[in-house]
Design a protein around this nucleic acid. Structure first.
Ligand SMILES: [Mn+2]
Ligand SMILES: [Mn+2]
Ligand SMILES: [Zn+2]
Ligand SMILES: [Zn+2]
Lengths: 141, 141
DNA sequence: TTATCTATTGCGAATAGTTGCAATAGATAA
DNA sequence: TTATCTATTGCAACTATTCGCAATAGATAA
């Protein structure tokens, strides 16, 4: 069973309806090794199938995010990027001075994840995380 | 010297021009103990002075953020919120299921800050941070 | 003071993302 | 199969945020 099928099956189990639109969006998202924007998903679907409305794409991505099947990240590029689990885990260090994005090991967040769960009962999404700050180059100036 | 004056003076030192708009926006932001949206800043300025264009407010908030004088946060409320240092430090745990926002001690991030600096030379902005995940109540269900 | 240079502003248009609503179509049970 | 219920979709309108550009006005040096 592909990852897309796994997600779709689980969505149905949770009471959501399975529509061709949702199947296509999940398929496009899981197929992508990189982050994609909502607009990129629409473009990819247009290549092979009938178009899906951008509002539906946003709603589906939001659903996948809420249900824990997609990650949503702000990389300071003007639009949000989405990915599933075949991408990562890792974190993105985003420089607020120069915009550079450094990919870092998600292991630096292991202790934090444990602390938040123990102290606040909160289970954070840390396997594809963005942290803003200032990069080494910009610190030198 | 008020916090607003300190920020404005430092901006000038860094080569930025001091305009009445910037002074008013910094003033409004530092006066607010809570987070504010760009729209709220415009409203406050309208009460007492001549209006400042919303685009200028966004540009100034972006500048303050880039220069390290303001924090910008996504609390999943549909718009970004901004604050200066008189607010915090603390972090916000945002539940992606119910939207609840839990305020937590920023000390849980101390080790992370040190790690990122040592391992990547990256200085993260951690004193007013948002982390998405699932809250204790929603985990129970 | 005045002239010069150019960063900043306001405005309107553009882009990103959300929402209300009527039409459509999954899911379920008869 | 068919009928029923209502979740989901497409569309258009709307909100949030960004951007190009011409006009304005800080800063600096004469
Ligand atoms: Mn990534
Ligand atoms: Mn706060
Ligand atoms: Zn940088
Ligand atoms: Zn919750």
């Amino acid at each position: 069973m592909t990852q897309a099928q796994t997600i779709v099956t689980e969505l149905k189990k949770r009471g959501y309806r399975i529509t061709p639109q949702r199947e296509m969006i999940v398929e496009a998202l899981t197929r992508s090794p990189r982050h994609v924007t909502a607009e990129e998903i629409v473009e990819r679907l247009r290549e092979h199938t009938s178009a899906v409305n951008i509002a539906t794409v946003y709603r589906t991505l939001e659903l996948l995010w809420q249900e824990g099947f997609a990650r949503k990240n702000d990389l300071s590029e003007g639009k949000s990027v989405y990915a599933t689990f075949q991408h990562g885990p890792h974190i993105h260090l985003v420089c607020r001075k120069c915009g550079r994005v450094i990919e870092a090991d998600a292991a630096v967040l292991d202790a934090l994840g444990k602390d938040l769960l123990e102290q606040y009962g909160f289970q954070p999404d840390l396997d594809h995380f963005s942290i803003f700050g200032v990069c080494a180059d910009c610190l030198d100036k």
